[in-house]
């Protein structure tokens, strides 16, 4: 009873947060709603005993990704009036996508694949089952290759992003900090006998 109550609480709040992202007038408020939505999704993970996934969701999405989002939004000057200009122009296209998605969701939900009988009932394991350990074991044995490939792709993306932004201006003066830090007294001070 308790669990179902929490499920409906988190699920409703996640949906409310998702609606808020789209409907909020202010971009900053949209971001706050998205953060709220992530929190509630993390709550859903906790209900499934997947505390590792829930905390990772908060750590990575709320703690890092959304901070960068906010960073970008803070720096932008968003012109509200200009944003609303194209509303009618894009309405048919957007409406069509929404309609197709709605039909797809209804179709998927009523197909019977997602029926409660079809999904193995998830019971709670005992306290000795640690899902962090289990995820680690599966990730580093069964799915090792896929995991490593994903890691390499991310690394390449990382290096690529750095290379794209790396430029040294020739006309600007740069300080070499290790040189500055390693300066000794003898380099700067000269004793003069008078």
């Amino acid at each position: 009873m308790f669990e179902a109550g929490f499920f409906y609480l988190f699920a409703t709040m996640a949906v409310v947060g998702g609606m808020g992202v789209v409907l909020a007038r202010h971009t900053m408020h949209s971001v706050m709603f998205l953060i709220f939505c992530f929190f509630n999704s993390a709550g859903l993970f906790f209900l499934l005993d997947a505390e590792f996934l829930g905390i990772i969701l908060i750590l990575i999405y709320v703690g890092a990704v959304m901070v960068l989002f906010m960073f970008v939004i803070m720096m932008l000057e968003v012109n509200q009036a200009k944003l609303r200009e194209g509303f009618l122009q894009y309405l048919p296209m957007g409406g069509m996508i929404a309609l197709i998605l709605l039909i797809e969701f209804i179709g998927a939900a009523s197909s019977g694949i997602f029926h409660t009988n079809a999904i193995a009932a998830v019971g709670h394991f005992g306290k000795d089952v640690n899902n962090t350990v289990e995820i680690g074991k599966v990730l580093y044995t069964q799915y090792l290759l896929g995991f490593e490939i994903a890691a390499i792709i991310l690394l390449v993306a990382l290096v690529g992003a750095i290379v794209l932004t790396l430029r040294t201006r020739q006309d600007a003066k740069y300080q070499n900090i290790s040189k500055q830090v390693n300066v000794r007294k003898e380099d700067r001070l000269r004793k003069v006998r008078m």
Partner: peptide
């Protein structure tokens, strides 16, 4: 008494930035 205590603290302390921001 969480068995992912360290991760929890990392996650929560990374939220402190929102106040400043």
């Amino acid at each position: 008494h969480l068995n992912v205590g360290i991760l929890y603290i990392l996650a929560i302390s990374s939220l402190a930035i929102y106040g400043v921001l």
